[in-house]
Design a protein around this nucleic acid. Structure first.
Lengths: 338, 338
DNA sequence: TTGTATGCGTTATCAT
DNA sequence: ATGATAACGCATACAA
């Protein structure tokens, strides 16, 4: 439709077009209080006519703020359901009028360090570092040159604010839910691998609940192997079912473990949830809603952690961020397996 | 360890520190040919000592290039396995020394338009728009102000280059594979919903292969419903199995459909793959590798599309991009269900 | 209320 | 080979 407006107009072009000074244009652009309605209208009209678009790089040079935040993650792909962290972070940033620079490191520390360097060069207003599973992180000193928040991980010296799932509370609640349903013999198939805080937190939460009700029995606990993807779930469930006093409920510390447990129970001809109830953990949507019966599980608050991180990052109005360590609750998702 | 270097040094600071002119520093920074080794060394040393870090916003003001590319996607979450598109795009951008600005629109067109506007304000070097399923897209005119590439979708007027999966070829090959295994009666459970190109392409590929071998029979085709998530797979498989001349293989146009078909076959006591082979589509990793037996399927080239898009975007050395329409092959992933 | 001038950190042009 | 200087587009301090 329109002609050749190659989007090249500057603040001065619209100034002369509107017959005002450059400063005035800047003022209306930034909604300054002291500018008459008539001139504001003229300027707005000129902006419209010349198809003006402000240059954020120029603006950044003056103000020092880029309106961009950096987001670094270690393994965006391995636990794909965790993209909700990014989604939550980006959505909140958007509400603040900011855009998000995303880099996936694939767990390569050199890339993470360089990513931080590149973001600093771009003058990001803040950086968020997200791990895809709860663990301790290691970051370069330069991270402290800008406001930063950690998701699903923490620094050895706790010098940065972080938000993680409340593993203990979630496991405790999951166990309580099962107990409330009348179960006395509740097995736990824990996860393996390097997610220490998750492994220990979930075990502790389960243990505390069981002990509080005088139900604790170490035979009911199966520790995870390192095969990954919950592949030990099958053998673990089999083992649990061979107990003389076999459990009437199994708490799987991961939905993928639950999927394998389902398979074992199925082969044994044991009905879920009538003979044995199964509780998952993660709310790994592709797994939980593909299983039959649908899996009841504790949801990891991915979206919420992403939101919290950006919210906290941006709330700090430039002040140095208090290095709080926040634990977010994991809601129980009731479906059909309990 | 070091003192109070608050990372504030500019090109001039290091110039005076090294006892040279500002221009010289810029030259070594950009690897210009005509600079003596001795001065280069001095400058490098000063850079090191003052912990200098270039300002990309200042650089962008001069050069006009931001070294950033924008990535807009409609539904990052609904088909979460498609994050590989982002992963592939970001990885290639990284290799080019560029960072990626990501915004998820949740399918909201207003957000998409505004995102493009914001990216233009930030002077991105290019924009990639990715749909999470193969369809026609609608974008504002302003998208043409910068190099742009489409993923998994296309514009009505084909004015932008795009990369999509070769739906026809993939379905054709999937069917051929089944035929080669000796199957004559091959059922197709197609998908429902609004992914027109995928629905039609897969149907056409299947049909072409069946006809080429004189195996075509419309009774073998079940069209998908709109329940989503492949939930019609169960009923469709049941229907197929009730045929007088029932199929010995089922081609499911989506892994989630296959998951439901598994359930149906299971209930019917039909063994996979011995009595009925099952071919999936998507290589939806959480589904395909959770099922038992593991699902053989056609993989959507998500990662490759992301890579291709950025590669093509950046290859154009500033020249306007030729609006080619590329179809990428979908590799067959052999597992246990065939 | 509004116009003018200055400087943010670079790169590029022009001397030398 | 290298140093001085202008200009990129904007926000702000200062003047009017």
């Amino acid at each position: 439709m329109s002609s050749i407006r190659s989007t090249k107009s500057t603040i001065r072009d619209i100034a002369s077009h509107a017959g005002v000074g450059a400063g005035t244009v800047s003022r209306v652009l930034n909604n300054h209080p002291h500018v008459s309605d008539s001139t504001r209208a003229k300027v707005l009209k000129a902006i419209e006519e010349l198809n003006y678009r402000p240059s954020f790089s120029a603006r950044q040079m003056r103000t020092g703020k880029s309106q961009v935040i950096g987001f670094i993650t270690d393994e965006i792909a391995s636990t794909q359901f965790a993209v909700n962290i990014i989604k939550g972070a980006q959505a909140v940033a958007w509400d603040y009028g900011k855009l998000v620079l995303v880099v996936n490191s694939d767990g390569n520390r050199a890339i993470e360090y360089e990513a931080i360097e590149m973001m600093l060069e771009r003058g990001v207003d803040g950086i968020i570092y997200a791990s895809m599973f709860h663990r301790q992180a290691q970051l370069p000193d330069s991270i402290h040159e800008v406001p930063a928040v950690l998701i699903d991980c923490f620094l050895p010296d706790r010098s940065l604010p972080s938000v993680v799932p409340d593993e203990f509370g979630a496991a405790h609640e999951a166990t309580e839910i099962l107990i409330r349903k009348g179960h006395r013999r509740i097995g736990l198939i824990n996860l393996g691998g390097e997610a220490k805080p998750a492994i220990e937190g979930r075990l502790a939460g389960y243990t505390a609940a069981m002990q509080a009700h005088g139900l604790y029995d170490p035979d009911l606990i199966v520790h995870g192997g390192d095969e990954g993807a919950g592949r030990h779930g099958y053998a673990s469930a089999m083992k649990l079912m061979k107990l003389t006093e076999r459990p009437t409920a199994i708490f799987c510390a991961q939905d993928r473990i639950a999927a394998q447990a389902y398979r074992a129970l199925h082969e044994l001809g044991i009905a879920i949830p009538n003979e044995v109830a199964v509780m998952g953990f993660d709310n790994h949507i592709d797994v939980a809603t593909t299983l039959s019966p649908l899996l009841s599980t504790m949801a990891l608050p991915h979206l919420e952690m992403g939101q919290w991180a950006v919210e906290y990052l941006l709330s700090g109005a430039g002040e140095p961020l208090e290095p709080v360590q926040v634990k977010l609750p994991c809601p129980y998702i009731e479906r059909q397996s309990i």
